[in-house]
């Protein structure tokens, strides 16, 4: 791997990690406040991407970047108010299944409106240039913009969590779930707000990721499980854990694509060039396994290993 590929991979890893954290932070906030692991979180991300695409056709990308997450946030708040709150009395399983069904319905509804194929959600013209060159290769300005947006959102979120009364309680409830009861009669209102804000964060991620990842109906289903890996590996309810895990997954997934190496190559260095045929076809398969193929598997391996050996996660305190 050349120095150019290495530096670009690092940049992209950080960027992807930040994008994942935009999603994982909302998921973590919702989980620590309400005890619900929201299966529909990635669906709000997808709705954000589609709304961003649709709105930017009419009002331009930047207004859409503001408006689409707002709509997604309101949508999230409504889901909490009229859906989640009703199933709360059936316990966590009911809530879990509700969000599970919601994810299913949103995917179908998106297909109903926009069709099954991917949308042509392009990078806005104002950001369609090369930001800087490194080793003779250009890095797109839009990606730099994504990074800036993500950092700005985190700064805003941090202010919200440290400077407002409700924010402080929400932050405290991350480590002390019993804090939620300190909210008194405002609990339902705060639940709705947290769910709305969490969804809006996913919406922002959707709008800025839409032009880079492909805007298609399967984007929620393919990202959802990765988000669970992040919040579980990081430690359920831990923002810092989710941040670390987001970066880890960002690096794993980016570098797995960048590294061009297979089992055959490794054995090649050892002077074994052909798969021993007497071991059967399964070993011939294993012979051809490349790092790029393993990339999608590693997060799940990490999840399973983590849950078995350290169920509280990297930073988490709740077993």
């Amino acid at each position: 791997m050349g120095l150019d590929v290495l530096s670009f991979s690092i940049l992209n890893s950080v960027l992807y990690g930040m994008l994942l954290f935009l999603l994982a932070s909302g998921l973590t906030l919702i989980f620590s406040m309400m005890g619900v692991l929201n299966f529909a979180h990635a669906s709000f991300f997808m709705v954000g991407a589609y709304l961003g695409y649709e709105l930017s056709k009419d009002i331009g990308f930047f207004p859409a970047l503001v408006l689409a997450p707002l709509i997604v946030g309101v949508l999230g708040a409504l889901v909490e108010r009229y859906g989640l709150r009703r199933v709360h009395r059936f316990g966590h399983l009911g809530e879990l299944l509700f969000t599970f069904g919601l994810a299913f319905v949103i995917e179908e509804a998106v297909q109903m409106i926009w069709g099954r194929s991917s949308q042509n959600f392009g990078v806005p013209a104002a950001l369609d240039f090369t930001a800087f060159e490194l080793f003779g290769t250009g890095y797109p300005a839009f990606r730099v913009f994504m990074l800036v947006v993500a950092v700005a959102v985190f700064a805003g979120l941090w202010l919200l969590l440290t400077k407002t009364r409700v924010g402080l309680i929400v932050k405290a409830s991350l480590t002390h779930p019993e804090m939620v009861s300190m909210l008194g009669h405002n609990v339902p209102m705060v639940f709705m707000a947290v769910f709305g804000v969490g969804s809006a964060l996913a919406g922002i991620a959707g709008v800025i990721a839409g032009p880079v990842l492909v805007t298609q109906p399967s984007m929620a289903a393919s990202l959802g499980p990765i988000l669970f890996v992040i919040v579980v590996v990081g430690g359920l309810g831990s923002l810092s854990g989710a941040f670390i895990a987001s970066l880890i997954i960002g690096f794993i997934q980016t570098f797995a694509v960048a590294i061009d190496l297979s089992v055959r190559d490794v054995f090649g260095w050892l002077g074994v060039s052909e798969a021993p045929t007497f071991l059967g076809p399964v070993f011939t398969d294993a012979w051809g396994v490349s790092v790029a193929q393993l990339g999608p598997v590693i997060p799940y391996l990490l999840l399973v290993v983590m849950l078995i050996f350290r169920p509280a996660g990297l930073v988490g305190k709740r077993g």
Binding site: P225, F228, V282, V289
Partner: peptide, 22 residues
């Protein structure tokens, strides 16, 4: 944790399918 491990295991087996066509 049970839900998550079963999710992880099934994704592992599913992903392994691409690796072992035989």
């Amino acid at each position: 944790p049970f839900a998550m491990i079963t999710l992880g295991l099934s994704e592992l087996v599913y992903a392994a399918a691409a690796i072992f066509p035989s």
